[in-house]
Design a protein around this nucleic acid. Structure first.
Length: 161
DNA sequence: GTTCTAACA
DNA sequence: TGTTAGAA
């Protein structure tokens, strides 16, 4: 079963459908989480008991509900588990992966200035990664083309800014 | 029909 | 971890 909740200003959640929704949280049950990740409900309960994953705050005897985002964490843990890591190590690796992704995100948001689509058909483009030489007006670009991807140092005109 | 806990394989 | 049981 899937529930849709919307975050209200007071911090409490209400069922969607009463509009006023800004951010909608998708909440899933243990059965769905299990089906979408391939991790058994038994394992999910055990992982939660160990503190590796969290259900959304609820009463003790109520059915578990998870944020949709939790499926990514579960998938990551399963991935490492399948690679042969122990559960504890898998959780560790999954957490490391999450932290690495946060760094990626910060870099992307902070440094990528422009993305130019050069080929709509093949989804090629050029990513502007910023100025490396103010004097000689050079910028570094990440280029995605038929050869894959590579970096390029290019001159840029003042007009580009 | 689904999920819960507890217990045992 | 899987599977079962009985209850909610």
């Amino acid at each position: 079963m899937i529930w849709l909740f919307t975050r209200m200003s007071g911090g409490q959640s209400l069922m969607i459908g009463k509009k006023k929704s800004l951010k909608a949280d998708i909440i899933i049950g243990i059965g769905d989480l299990s089906k979408m990740t391939g991790v058994s409900a038994r394992q999910l309960r055990y992982w939660e008991e160990k503190g590796y994953i969290q259900a959304v705050s609820g009463k003790k005897n109520a059915t578990r509900k998870y944020k949709f985002e939790m499926s990514f964490k579960v998938q990551a843990i399963k991935r490492y588990l399948d690679e042969g890591y122990t559960l504890a190590k898998s959780v560790e690796q999954a957490e490391k992966l999450r932290k690495k992704f946060e760094i990626w995100k910060k870099f992307l948001v902070g440094k990528v200035q422009e993305v130019e689509i050069t080929d709509t058909q093949h989804n090629y483009g050029v990513i502007e990664l910023g100025c490396v030489d103010e004097e000689q007006k050079k910028k570094i670009y990440g280029v995605v083309d038929e050869n894959g991807c590579h970096f390029e140092l290019r001159d840029y005109a003042e007009a580009d800014n």
